[in-house]
Structure formats: structure tokens, C-alpha cells
């Protein structure tokens, strides 16, 4: 058997890295704190840009990593540095000596209730992007079921591009997610008026602009440029949204049956603690710090410790997968040089 490799985090990044390492002949140990693999993607319904089922993507990867040592509901309790590797103790009592560690700890969704002015957890008809994905998957949400849904709004940049919320970064995936979800909502409620309140539309990826044009042309989504300043509730329980229509240069307001907040991607605070066990620091944006952010995003300043996926910043699934593959190769090359 070849050298031990520990992968922390069983999201797309950790799973794809495990898959590639298996192909390279290693038997990686994958630890995941929750009771299932897939990370956030396991919560999503359909993935942009192909609109393929998220659960197929997770199942596909699960099939490919059957041979790996997978510990669910397990975390790292401590890590000791050895001469050419690490001694890792898991919460399930297992203790391993390994040569390389991959931090694939992912991100946290911004806690929407922290933006009190948007009323999440205060007004009944306010939900998050994640809640809406859950409704697509389960069909169960009292904010939608049994309600007359005639007007729906999507608030971009919730907890992103917001210095006061502690996150000046753009979360990158939420503009396209908002457009994707706006179009999906239109499919469920064809007569509904759907509004997207945005500051900029950051549609950087393959086919994203096509989504935008389709949302305009086929779904008739109304795009209003302006950041929502406040949300209130009327006696009928509907939400009133205030913004500036900055294209008109005038304040605007609208009453909605449902408001969806595009919660952003923020660093996983718990992962920061795990990373500190192997002296990996956080970058100025709060995410885990790579050796550099151009050619060595996968490497760290700690010997034998690598990074992949959203642990270092907002990323899409294909970007995460690409990084995970690169990380597997980087680990392989590192282990070869140790010989």
C-alpha cells in the first residue's frame, strides 16, 4: 500500500480529489463531519449551466470513491507534525500517520438573518436561495405551499460586497443562481411577475449570459438595478421592498408574495480552526490562504498540506472539480519527491 493521504471535507472537492487519488493508486481517507457526502451540492436541485440534477453529480462521484476509506460524522480532533508527515487523530478514535493532507472544507452560506433589514426569520415570506433549492427538492415549504404566488423578488448580494457584513467579496455564483432560480420559479408560476434586484450582473461563466438573455426574452424576468435597502411587511403578510431604480434615478417600491435572498459564500469558520492545526493561515478575504493566488492556489506554506475547492474562495462546481484534480496531482508529485 502506498502512503496515507487524509482528505478533510467530503464535498465535491474532497470527493473528486479522492477519486483521482484512487486512480493514481492511493487509498485516501476521507473525513466528513455531516452524515452524508456531497457538501452543499447535495442540497441543490439542478446545477447551472446544464440544469442537470445535482443529486446525479453527487451519486456519480459516490460511485467512483467506493474504494476510499470514508468516515462520516467524523472530524479532526488534533494533528501533530512529524518529520515527513502528520499524525492525525479523528473524533471517531481512529489515529493515522499520513504524508499529505488535503483541506477541502468548503464554505458556509452567509447567515441571512444577520441582514436584519431584509427580514429573514422576521417576516414570513422571506427565504434564502438555499431554502428555495430545498423547496425544489422536497416541495415542502409553508412560505410557498398553499400561498398565492403572484409576485416574487430576488435580492442579489446578500452578505456579499458588504463591508459592514464583514464580507467585501463578491460571491460569484449568486448572480447566475438568482437568474436560474428566477426562471425556475417562472416555470412553476407562469403568471407571476419576477424581479431581480441587482447592483451588477456578474455573469462570468460559460453560457451564463445566455441564461440572462433567456430570462429576459422567454421568462420575462424584470431586472431592477439597485440594492434593496429595506423590506417591511404589510397587514396581509406580503413583503414590501424598497430600492432605488438606479437606471431611472428614482426610488422604487414593490409588494411581493415571496422574497428570495441570495445569501453569499463566506469562509467556513470551523475550517479555519482545523487549518490552524497545520499552520495554514487565513487570507485577507477570510478564506484559507494559498501559497499564492496565481500559480500556487492549491499549495500552502505548510509542507504536505494542500487546498481544493471553495475553502479558498467562491467557486462553481466545474472550478471546484478542476482544482480537486489539480490537487490530487500536486499531492502525487509531492509524495514522489519525498521518495
Amino acid at each position: 500500500m502506498k502512503d496515507n493521504i487524509v482528505i478533510i471535507g467530503g464535498g465535491i472537492a474532497g470527493m473528486e480529489a479522492a477519486h483521482q487519488l484512487l486512480l493514481l493508486g492511493y487509498k485516501p481517507i476521507l473525513v466528513e463531519k455531516s452524515d452524508h457526502l456531497g457538501g452543499h451540492v447535495a442540497d441543490w436541485h439542478k446545477l447551472f449551466p446544464d440544469m442537470s440534477p445535482a443529486k446525479d453529480a453527487v451519486r456519480d462521484l459516490e460511485e467512483k470513491i467506493k474504494e476510499a476509506n470514508i468516515f462520516l460524522e467524523t472530524e479532526v480532533s488534533f494533528i501533530n507534525r512529524l518529520k515527513n508527515g502528520y499524525n492525525v487523530m479523528f473524533t471517531n478514535g481512529v489515529n493515522v500517520i499520513c504524508k499529505a493532507i488535503l483541506l477541502a472544507t468548503g464554505f458556509n452560506l452567509f447567515e441571512a438573518s444577520r441582514k436584519e433589514e431584509y427580514g429573514y426569520g422576521i417576516y414570513n415570506q422571506v427565504m434564502t436561495n438555499s431554502d428555495l433549492e430545498r423547496w425544489f427538492n422536497t416541495g415542502d415549504d409553508k412560505r410557498i405551499n398553499g400561498k398565492e404566488i403572484k409576485k416574487v423578488g430576488f435580492v442579489h448580494c446578500v452578505g456579499s460586497r458588504d463591508v459592514k457584513a464583514g464580507n467585501p467579496q463578491c460571491s460569484k455564483v449568486c448572480c447566475i443562481t438568482a437568474i436560474k432560480q428566477a426562471m425556475e420559479v417562472k416555470e412553476f408560476f407562469p403568471d407571476a411577475e419576477v424581479y431581480c434586484f441587482y447592483m451588477d450582473l456578474r455573469l462570468f461563466g460559460k453560457k451564463y449570459e445566455d441564461f440572462y438573455i433567456k430570462a429576459q426574452m422567454e421568462s420575462g424576468v424584470h431586472f431592477i438595478r439597485g440594492r434593496v435597502s429595506e423590506v417591511s411587511e404589510n397587514i396581509e403578510g406580503k413583503v414590501i421592498v424598497k430600492t432605488e431604480d438606479t437606471l431611472s434615478g428614482k426610488p422604487a417600491k414593490v409588494t411581493l408574495d415571496l422574497l428570495v435572498l441570495m445569501s453569499g459564500i463566506v469562509c467556513n469558520k470551523q475550517a479555519v480552526d482545523t487549518a490552524s492545526l497545520v499552520q495554514v493561515k487565513t487570507d485577507s478575504d477570510g478564506f484559507l490562504k494559498s501559497k499564492d493566488n496565481i500559480l500556487n492556489i492549491i499549495e500552502t506554506d505548510s509542507k504536505g498540506v494542500f487546498l481544493a475547492g471553495t475553502a479558498t474562495g467562491p467557486k462553481t462546481v466545474p472550478e471546484t472539480v478542476a482544482e480537486a484534480r489539480a490537487a490530487a496531482l500536486a499531492i502525487h508529485n509531492y509524495l514522489v519527491t519525498l521518495k
Binding site: 426610488p251 422604487a252 414593490v254
Partner: peptide, 27 residues
């Protein structure tokens, strides 16, 4: 000067989009 989107009458816009669907494409 507030634009009250609840009260906006889309009749003319809808009529325009019938003849000129590309109007919806403006960014």
C-alpha cells in the same frame, strides 16, 4: 417621484414586446 411597481401598467410594454420582442433584450 417613487416608482410604484405595483401600479405600473404594462399594457404598452406588452404591446411593444408583441411587435418588437427584442425590446426585452435591452441590457
Amino acid at each position: 417621484s417613487t416608482i410604484n411597481l405595483d401600479k405600473v401598467d404594462f399594457t404598452l410594454y406588452d404591446r411593444l414586446c408583441e411587435i418588437e420582442p427584442d425590446a426585452k433584450k435591452c441590457m
